[in-house]
Design a protein around this nucleic acid. Sequence first.
DNA 1: CAAGGTATTTTGATAGCTCAAAATGAGTTT
DNA 2: AAACTCATTTTGAGCTATCAAAATACCTTG
Lengths: 222, 222
Amino acid sequence: MASSTVENYLKHLLLAEEGAAGGLVPMGALAGALAVVPGTVTTMVKALADDGLVEHRPRHGVRLTAEGRRVALNVLRKHRLVETFLVKVLKMDWAEVHVEAEQLEHALSDNVLDRLDALLGRPETDPHGDPIPSAQGRLSAEVHATLASCATGRPLRVVRVTEQSKEFLHFVDASGLAPGATVRVTERNLAAGLVTVKKSAGRPLALSLTAAGKILVAPARG
Amino acid sequence: MASSTVENYLKHLLLAEEGAAGGLVPMGALAGALAVVPGTVTTMVKALADDGLVEHRPRHGVRLTAEGRRVALNVLRKHRLVETFLVKVLKMDWAEVHVEAEQLEHALSDNVLDRLDALLGRPETDPHGDPIPSAQGRLSAEVHATLASCATGRPLRVVRVTEQSKEFLHFVDASGLAPGATVRVTERNLAAGLVTVKKSAGRPLALSLTAAGKILVAPARG
DNA sequence: CAAGGTATTTTGATAGCTCAAAATGAGTTT
DNA sequence: AAACTCATTTTGAGCTATCAAAATACCTTG
Ligand SMILES: [Mn+2]
Ligand SMILES: [Mn+2]
Ligand SMILES: [Mn+2]
Ligand SMILES: [Mn+2]
């Protein structure tokens, strides 16, 4: 069995590979994500490579092997299903569940996981709209526009929020921009770095481009 | 935060203190419970003593301090509530939940714990009849007779099974002796080491004294 | 191409937890 | 009392995961 440390390395690697040039993740990026110093990552990555979980291209980066990806997807599945359970069944605040899941993802057996999945009705996304990998290790790779990149004027449905900090999630929720919400982008000012959105009922709301880029949307009633 | 290792040492110490002479647990007993060699326990116990979690009487044994007991009770509470959740909500086999809880007890926050407790309706015992410590750290110390020690002839209610091995629990369940069941001891043969019990409906069942001693009972309809 | 700057790797240490095997202590037995 | 037995402790070592700081490699810039 992989230790929690190994599971975390693999999971963060999986997350970092999305949108990394050639899927190769630089050591520094992984170090940042895991909050350890780069030297530690170099050492660990060599050990993971020896175990066949990653491929290490010295001075270029790391990438998951098929086996490493399998393990990583299973951890990610646990993480997101646990988050869903905590919100849906235990009624926890969606801003708090990430830290809890960070521990529980390593303590849940596959057996418990599957029962949890059944109890929740085999959900496809977690409370933040993040896709839940299937038991077979399939992960939806749907690409979405963000409030920073989408067409203006049209009605949109929020489908996902790609940041888990408490502050940001509270803000998003308080602004009525949680997944499922319907909004329109009324104005986008690149120079000022500002996006203005409007919900059917309510006054317009201003967001920075950075914040807007973390809120993924799809055309409403499509 | 105490590591899982420390939590396990403290929890097993709490369990071993019940019925240990003067509450002092011999190092060897703890080593056996934790499945490590005695030398390891000596080393760890010294570290725990430095942290004020246990009191070490060299060459005599260990005992929890008030602080160590507090931590241990919290872990035990998590363990038993998780077991209850797994059986009641996820419908798992009562023989399988112990191993799962052994991991989850270290990954659950106090916050999640309390919500689980509420969801379950603040149960007082787990699926095996083991008392669940309260959030304030109170643990019921009720003393029960066993099928090996109780009066014969009288109707009895099974209240607790004090062993968690899969095999034993499956046997108990298959024999209809799970907590809640009503039985009578029809015969006890000390020489042969045999106890015979009878359920209202069904043929008599023979048990070894050792097995009978693990099934705790109380007078029925008392 | 030499100099700089930055990411990465290497080196040397440490903390936590564990084992094997030798040493020690404290009764018991003879 | 000397010998024996058994639990406990000590010693020496290893593994995993981490850091600080020095060394190195690979750009980029002048
Ligand atoms: Mn984690
Ligand atoms: Mn999530
Ligand atoms: Mn445990
Ligand atoms: Mn139990």
